[in-house]
Amino acid sequence: MNQAPANRADRFVAPAEREIWRILADVPDPEIPVLSVVELGIIRHVRLADDGRVTVGVSPTYTGCPATEVIARSIETRLEAEGYEHPKVESVLSPPWTSDWLTESGRAKLKEYGIAPPAHSVSHPKHLFREPKVACPRCSSMQTSKVSEFASTPCKALYRCASCLEPFEYFKCI
C-alpha cells in the first residue's frame, strides 16, 4: 500500500462521504499545523451510517504519539460544528501507519515549513538501516548531517546543513 487513502477517496467514495473527507482536509495536525490530518495520511476510513452517524478511522503515527487524543477530539469537534451529530473516531493500528502515506501536497508543505520530508519510500525494510540522503529544506544542499535520531517529536530527526549552517528537522521514514 503506497498510496494514501485520501488519494483514492475522490474516485471511489460516495459523495456524502467525500464531503466529510473535504471537512477533514481542513483539520490541522496539532504538532505540525501546516499539515491537515488527511495530508498526514492518518485518516484510514470515513463511514456514514444510515442514521447519519459518522465514524472516522485514524491511525496513530507512533504508538505513543501524545497528539493522538487531541487529533480525535479536534476531528469530532469539527464534524459537530459542521452539523454531524455524535461523530466517532476509532483507532486503526493495522496495517501500521507509514510515512509513505504523506500526500504530495503534505510533503511540499513540510518543506515550505522548514521540515525536510521523508527522503524515500519505506517499502523495503533495508532502508531503515541505511542513512538517507537528506536535502536541506532551506537551501536544498545535500551537504547535511544528522545531529540526533530524535527531535522535538518521535516522528522527526535533527539535522544540520553544512552549506547554510542552519539546523533543521527531518520527517523520518517509518
Binding site: P60, Y62, T63, G64, C65, P66, L93, V147, S148, E149, F150, A151, S152, T153, P154, L158
Partner: peptide, 20 residues
C-alpha cells in the same frame, strides 16, 4: 539536549506499547 529528547521519545514509544 538531543539525548534528552531522544530518551524521552523512546520512552514515549514504550509507553504507547504499554498502554496498548
Amino acid at each position: 539536549l538531543e539525548e534528552d529528547l531522544a530518551l524521552a521519545n523512546i520512552a514515549l514509544d514504550l509507553l504507547g506499547q504499554a498502554r496498548y
